[in-house]
Design a protein around this nucleic acid. Structure first.
Length: 542
RNA sequence: GUCCUCGUAGUUCAGUCUGGAUAGAACACAGGUUUGCGGAACCUGUAACCGGGGUUCAAAUCCUCGCGGGGACGCCA
């Protein structure tokens, strides 16, 4: 209908671009056209223009009324036709309703999470994984062939340090403590630093025993991280190991290629450095250091090699990184462009802050994802069965991180995060369960539905909301912003609960009951699809 | 110091990209919903655009200067 109105306006108003708005309240109609632009062009009062247009434009099928109100031209659509169109579409497309097939089966590579293999993930990292999980689902829903990658940083000083602190039988839950201890020691003891680099050099030179030690530690860590994230329903198609690019000599090849850009030079301390001036990088000197003095590689060099390979796998390529990587990513991009390679798209997210201040591993001021999960499950178990408790708890966790726009800090507060009331994941699940419960108690027959019986304001609002689903999904998936979907679903639930309290479905008069059942079914379907896209389990009883 | 980013009720967030009609919620607070399809719900109320300047018929939204939070700025990754 929206498209039809735009066509109509283009004809009458003689404009190429029509900016159709949705009025602030339903009494003002379903769509509105502000006449200010026209007023400027025609040099007339916008109020007059809107009045003139309201008389001039002839109604088309599906359009009930056109009304001028001040400088706005308001369009009222035929409610029952609208209801029929939207509800029928939902019930025929079912789980596919909302997808606009943006992907057309093209490949899409999403790299996310990529936590350093040094300890159990804290909430900041969880934000990456949860965002990544939802975005991947959204892209799949749009028919992209999505492949998720996890980049394992199994090379470098921090890993070497951890390896030194680990034994063969070290367990995953000891890693954090070890990591913190080793970092403290490092500050005090200069000899340890030498030892760390010595170990790293042995690793890079391919010493078999050392490689085995590294692998042992990294495996413990990745296994642990994987398990936690899997528990949350987040899984990966591929784990890419950074060390691969070291051992297959790609870093060496890369250095050779970079030499041809004439921007690679050896500095006074005999490190290889890439001159990136001209890329408008906000740093004192726009250099990217690629190796240490002993010519062992640094992270950026390996990352360039990895990214080049990654880009070959799919044209559509996204990486999710913390905001601390903003400048670094620009540097990576610059390096790639010097080599005439494309770069992935990037989504940066801001960090999770604690109400007591910043998260700091060393100060112990941090919340581990697994602790959060345990506490949430414990709380949920008080109200529901064990099986459901997990779903509810994880819904709360995911929603609390997904509801906030990615460029804002999430402020974490235990009370708020463990709340299952109000704007929370469990509220969404509860609403879904409620709608399901109505459907369970009724039988569907293939009767002819009289859609004009859905005429209460709450019903009309609900239908309108359902009709907006595809647009929300398109925005959320193309801008990589699941919070749009999260907020939408909450509003949809509010609408539904309002309807639920005001009107009875099962006890309504036969024809009304049938029409309302269709509405409930449609809400149930959209909620189910939407919740899954957020990575939240729709549960039928709770 | 330089650059990026955010600033909306007591608190936590939508809305900012693409400027339009009375800025929308949640939590907290105060009050209410007895025989109804699930009260993890619903209804009513109090309460907000960080400050100055600018652009515009119109600014929470765009520009600019402050102030405040977060992030970054050469052998960490």
């Amino acid at each position: 209908m929206q498209e039809k109105i735009i066509e109509l306006l283009k004809k009458y108003a003689n404009l190429k671009e029509i900016n159709l708005e949705i009025p602030p309240s339903p009494e003002l109609g379903d769509f509105a056209f502000p006449c200010f632009q026209l007023a400027k062009i025609q040099k007339k009062d916008p109020v007059e223009i809107s009045l003139a247009l309201s008389k001039e434009i002839k109604l088309i099928k599906g359009l009930e009324k056109i009304q001028a109100l001040g400088p706005y031209l308001n369009f009222f659509v035929d409610k029952s036709m609208n209801a029929e169109l939207i509800l029928k579409e939902i019930l025929t497309k079912k789980g596919k309703y909302g997808s606009r097939n943006l992907g057309k089966n093209k490949p899409f590579l999403v790299e996310h999470t990529s936590i350093n293999p040094n300890a159990s993930p804290h909430l900041g990292r969880a934000r990456n994984a949860i965002l990544g999980g939802s975005i991947s689902s959204l892209l799949k829903f749009q028919n992209y062939k999505v492949q998720t990658h996890y980049y394992v940083n199994d090379v470098g000083k921090q890993i070497a340090l951890l390896v030194l602190g680990c034994r063969k039988n070290t367990r995953f839950n000891q890693l954090l403590k070890i990591y913190i201890q080793m970092n403290k020691k490092l500050e005090a003891d200069k000899n340890l630093e030498r030892e760390v680099f010595g170990l790293l050099k042995k690793f890079e030179d391919g010493d078999k025993a050392t490689i085995k030690r590294f692998k042992n530690t990294v495996d413990i860590c990745i296994k642990g991280q994987k398990a936690i994230l899997k528990e949350l329903g987040i899984e990966y198609d591929l784990f890419d190991y950074e060390s691969k690019y070291l051992f297959n000599k790609q870093t060496n090849n890369l250095l050779e290629k970079l030499k041809s850009t004439k921007r690679l030079f050896e500095d006074e301390e005999s490190r290889f450095v890439l001159d990136q001036s001209g890329f408008n990088l906000a740093m004192k000197t726009p250099y990217l250091v690629l190796t240490r003095s002993d010519k062992t590689s640094l992270y950026p060099l390996r990352d360039i090699a990895y990214t080049i390979e990654k880009m070959k796998k799919a044209k559509n390529n996204l990486v999710i990184l913390g905001e601390d990587q903003k400048l670094y990513f620009q540097q990576l991009k610059a390096a790639l462009s010097l080599l005439n390679h494309p770069s992935p798209e990037v989504l940066h997210y801001s960090f999770v802050l604690l109400s007591t201040g910043k998260m700091s591993t060393r100060k112990g001021n941090l919340v581990l994802l697994e602790d959060f999960m345990k506490k949430a499950v414990k709380k949920a178990e008080k109200k529901s069965s064990k099986k459901i408790a997990k779903s509810v708890a994880y819904a709360a966790i995911k929603y609390s991180l997904l509801r906030v726009s990615n460029d804002k800090n999430v402020v974490f507060d235990w009370d708020q995060a463990l709340s299952f009331e109000g704007e929370t994941g469990p509220y969404l699940q509860y609403t879904y369960a409620r709608s399901y419960s109505i459907l369970r108690k009724s039988k569907f027959k293939n009767n002819k539905i009289n859609f004009s019986l859905l005429r209460e304001p709450a019903e009309i609002e609900l239908i309108k909301k359902l009709g907006a689903f595809s647009e929300i999904i398109e925005k959320a998936s193309s801008k990589y912003q699941p919070h749009l979907l999260a907020n939408y679903l909450f509003l949809l639930c509010q609408n539904f609960n309002e309807f639920y309290h005001k009107y009875s479905v099962l006890k309504a008069e036969k024809e009304v009951k049938e029409a309302r059942l269709i509405l409930v079914k449609a809400v149930n379907q959209v909620l189910k699809t939407g919740l899954k896209l957020l990575g939240i389990n729709p549960i039928e009883k709770m």
